[in-house]
């Protein structure tokens, strides 16, 4: 398909949706070119509507046959809650651009650990699948708050030789964070060569700390605020090994043992005030009759 052919179709049509919980939902978006180009570890920038902001979302899956990409979104702020309400199959997104960032290097490995926490469970899947396809034995560690928030367990079982589920409340699998699961996995498999950890900053830090004593290379995927995603604005800069890097073009994957997570967390709070403001206004507007 030529790129110009896409202009005839509805731009960035949503062709599927699945709700995992009250806050987390999946959107499948028609974009054959992107499905063909996407590699594990890459992300897109999405604008849900014309007045919207540009938000980076990791590509959770891509299907070259169906010509679609999958995004998993957590409704936490104004934009994502609005998307939760408005994005239904048959509707479209205003803008989707990507795949952005350097693809994760999937080298020949014998045994790897793929760790996903919360929202990071989805984007770690293509990496697990790619490692499996490259011939590695994949051990999965997935963290959720509780049993009823678990999703994609079967998908992971299809690519992971061993899957360790962790829940904060112990309602399924191991009680505790993914760090606990990682410790168990390493205890059983001292020959793990590499770990990929994707999720909230605290979860990625915990994973990196769990692997550090064993000297296992740990790749984390950073998700700072972005505008263009092409290296032009520098808003997504992160500190890695004492150096400034732009997550959009130098990443998003970095060595988890080198990342300054405190700096990342601080930078994620850049616009907290305005974000809360926007959410409050939106909640107010939603309560008005006729909306």
């Amino acid at each position: 398909m030529s790129p110009s052919a896409r202009a005839d179709a509805r731009p960035f049509e949503i062709i599927g949706r699945q709700d995992f919980s009250e806050a987390t939902f999946l959107l499948e978006i028609r974009h054959p070119l992107m499905a063909r180009a996407a590699r594990p570890g890459q992300f897109v920038i999405v604008m849900s509507q014309e007045h919207g902001e540009r938000i980076p979302l990791t590509i959770a899956d891509f299907d070259r046959e169906r010509g679609s990409i999958t995004l998993v979104i957590q409704a936490v702020g104004k934009t994502t809650r609005e998307m939760q309400q408005a994005c239904q199959p048959g509707t479209g997104l205003h803008a989707v651009v990507g795949p952005m960032g350097l693809p994760s290097p999937i080298g020949p490995k014998k045994k790897v650990l793929c760790v996903g926490g919360g929202l990071g469970v989805a984007p770690v899947f293509p990496q697990a699948r790619a490692f499996k396809e490259a011939g590695a034995a994949v051990i999965g560690v997935l963290g959720f708050r509780s049993r009823d928030l678990i999703f994609w367990e079967d998908k992971f079982r299809s690519v992971c030789g061993e899957l360790i589920l962790c829940t904060d409340d112990g309602s399924a699998g191991v009680k505790g964070t993914v760090a606990e699961g990682i410790r168990q996995a390493i205890a059983r498999h001292p020959d793990i060569e590499e770990c990929v950890a994707i999720g909230p900053p605290m979860m990625m830090r915990g994973s990196a700390e769990a692997t550090r004593p064993h000297g296992i290379k740990t790749v984390v995927s950073l998700n700072p605020l972005m505008i263009d995603g092409t290296g032009m604005c520098g808003g997504c800069r992160v500190k890695v090994g004492g150096q400034i890097k732009f997550a959009c073009v130098d990443g998003p994957d970095f060595d988890g043992h080198q990342v300054d997570f405190d700096d990342l967390v601080t930078r994620l709070k850049r616009f907290t005030g305005q974000e809360q403001d926007a959410l409050a206004r939106w909640n107010e507007a939603c309560r008005l009759p006729g909306r």
């Binding site: 790129p3 731009p11 890459q42 803008a95 995603g229």
Partner: peptide
Amino acid sequence: ECNTLVGRLF
């Protein structure tokens, strides 16, 4: 054609 990142999309 907007929303097209050459180098990465193709």
